[in-house]
């Protein structure tokens, strides 16, 4: 399974209680009420553990985290070491 599918599964399992109806790769987590602020922290904790990437406080912005597509790109970027501002905070 690729990163995008794994992230989608995580969101569906943890925030949509298994019901993926309506979730697209570009659905905004916050605007569409899929994930709240507590959930974003759960998502970040998952990324750090599952992909062994560090997410710096400065990176907690919607551009990195507000859809399945964005999260996947963010993680891929981190793994290739090309993400902007990839800090060492965890």
């Amino acid at each position: 399974m690729n990163v995008k599918d794994e992230i989608r599964n995580f969101v569906v399992e943890n925030f949509l209680f298994g019901d993926a109806g309506g979730l697209t790769d570009d659905s905004s987590f916050i605007r569409e009420g899929i994930v709240d602020s507590t959930g974003i922290l759960q998502l970040v904790a998952y990324l750090q553990e599952r992909y062994q990437v560090a997410v710096a406080d400065e990176e907690l912005i919607p551009e990195n985290l507000d859809s399945v597509q964005r999260v996947a790109a963010f993680v891929e970027g981190k793994r290739q070491g090309s993400a902007a501002g990839a800090g060492n905070a965890g």
Partner: peptide, 12 residues
Amino acid sequence: NNNFAYTASVIR
């Protein structure tokens, strides 16, 4: 700002 989940964007 309705994006408090993304704290960095709020502080910025």
